[in-house]
Amino acid sequence: MPRFYFDLREGTRFVSDEGGIEFDSLDAAEHHAAQTAAEIGRDKLPSRHACETIVEVRNEHKQRVITVAVSMRIQRVSPLPEPPEDERPPPHPWSA
């Protein structure tokens, strides 16, 4: 059974997988990489420290064969838009 290695990149952080995991096929390794990236992303991406998680899969010859990237971008509009005229509260009678 072929062995695959799952390296992790988060910003400038890189963790190399030295042990690897055996899978029946490249498809199975791809599924594992996608699940891993999604799980890490779910836990880490809402923080302001990491905006992208990348899992790079290498084969038994240490050649990169798959890259899975999960990213999240949160963008706030500033200044906030005003509500439409018909949804604004009426002016206070004493403010003029």
Rank of each mutant, 00 (worst) to 15 (best):
H32K: 06
Q35D: 12
A38K: 13
E52A: 09
R76S: 12
E87M: 09
P81A: 08
D43E: 15
P2W: 07
P84I: 09
C51A: 15
P2Y: 07
Y5F: 14
F6C: 03
K62H: 13
E60K: 08
L80T: 12
R9Q: 11
M1V: 12
L26S: 05
T36Q: 11
T53D: 02
H92P: 04
A69P: 06
S25A: 10
H61W: 12
E87I: 02
P83E: 04
D27R: 09
H32P: 04
H92D: 09
Q75L: 04
A96W: 07
A50L: 06
V70K: 06
I54F: 02
R48N: 03
D86G: 01
E87N: 03
R73L: 15
G20V: 02
I40N: 15
T12E: 10
H31T: 15
A69I: 11
E82R: 11
E85M: 00
R3A: 12
A28S: 06
T53P: 01
Q35E: 12
V65F: 11
R9P: 02
P79M: 14
G11I: 01
P84Y: 05
F6M: 02
E87D: 09
L26Q: 06
D17G: 08
P2N: 11
P46A: 11
T53L: 10
P81D: 06
V15N: 10
S95N: 08
Q35N: 12
I54M: 02
D86C: 03
W94H: 08
D17C: 09
A38M: 15
A33E: 00
M1S: 13
V15I: 14
R42M: 07
I54S: 00
M72D: 10
S25C: 06
I74L: 14
D17L: 07
P89R: 01
V77Q: 13
S25Y: 07
